[in-house]
C-alpha cells in the first residue's frame, strides 16, 4: 500500500473490497482496512452490502445451460472452423504484427527500386513482340518516313516551280539575255544560260 493510498483509504478500500472479503489482502493491508472500517461508517456499510451480495450469490442454485443454447454454440464453432479450413492459408496471420510490417516494407522497397529503375531510364518492361509485329512496325516506320519525304519533295518542287523559277531564275536569265543582247553577244548569253 502506498502513502497516497493510506491517505485515501476510502477509495482504496472501495477498489479492494472483494479482495478484503475473500481474504486476499496481506495481513498489513487487512489490519489497515479493519482499522478504517472501525471509524468509517460509509465504508463499513459498503463492505457489509458487498458481503451480503457475495453470500447471496453463493446460495443461488446452479442453473443448467439449455441444450438448445449448447447446440447453437457448438454449431457456430464448427462452422467457423470449417470456414477457416476451406480458406486454406490463414492470410490473417500474415498481417498480424510483427510480420506484416516488414512484409509491407519489403513490398514497398521492391516497388520503389523498380520505379527508380524505370525513371532512371535503365530499361522499360519490354512487351513480347512477335516477329510479325516487328515486320509490320518496320514497314510502317519506313512508310511514315517516306511519306514525310514525299511531302517535303512535293512542297519543294512546288516552291521551285511557282516561286523560284518565275520570280528569281527566269528574271535573272532574261536580264542576262537582255544585257548580252545589248552587247551584241548572244553567244555569251547562251553560255551564261548554260552555266545557270
Amino acid at each position: 500500500m502506498t502513502q497516497l493510498e493510506r491517505d485515501n483509504l476510502c477509495p482504496w478500500l472501495n477498489e479492494n473490497v472483494e479482495r478484503f472479503l475473500d481474504g486476499e489482502l496481506n495481513p498489513s493491508e487487512t489490519s489497515i482496512a479493519e482499522e478504517h472500517l472501525a471509524t468509517c461508517t460509509l465504508c463499513a456499510q459498503q463492505v457489509e452490502f458487498a458481503g451480503q451480495i457475495s453470500s447471496t450469490l453463493r446460495t443461488l442454485p446452479i442453473v443448467d445451460c439449455p441444450d438448445s443454447v449448447t447446440e447453437a454454440v457448438y454449431e457456430k464453432v464448427a462452422v467457423s472452423a470449417l470456414k477457416r479450413s476451406m480458406q486454406g492459408f490463414d492470410w490473417g496471420r500474415l498481417f498480424t504484427p510483427p510480420v506484416w510490417r516488414p512484409a509491407l516494407i519489403g513490398v514497398v522497397s521492391v516497388g520503389l527500386v523498380a520505379l527508380i529503375a524505370v525513371i532512371g531510364g535503365r530499361r522499360d518492361v519490354v512487351p513480347a513482340y512477335t516477329a510479325r509485329d516487328l515486320a509490320r512496325a518496320r514497314v510502317e516506320a519506313k512508310w511514315a518516313l517516306r511519306l514525310v519525304n514525299q511531302v517535303g519533295e512535293r512542297a519543294g518542287a512546288q516552291m521551285r516551280n511557282e516561286l523560284l523559277n518565275p520570280r528569281v531564275i527566269r528574271p535573272v536569265i532574261r536580264a542576262v539575255e537582255t544585257e548580252a543582247a545589248k552587247r551584241g553577244s548572244k553567244r555569251d548569253a547562251q553560255e551564261v544560260r548554260n552555266e545557270g
Partner: peptide, 21 residues
C-alpha cells in the same frame, strides 16, 4: 530522314498481309 526516305523501297501497306490494322 530525307535521304532515307528517298532510298527506301517500300511496298504499299495494303499489300502486306497484316489484318490487325
Amino acid at each position: 530522314i530525307g535521304k532515307l526516305g528517298r532510298d527506301l523501297d517500300i511496298s504499299p501497306l495494303d499489300s502486306m498481309d497484316l489484318p490487325a490494322k
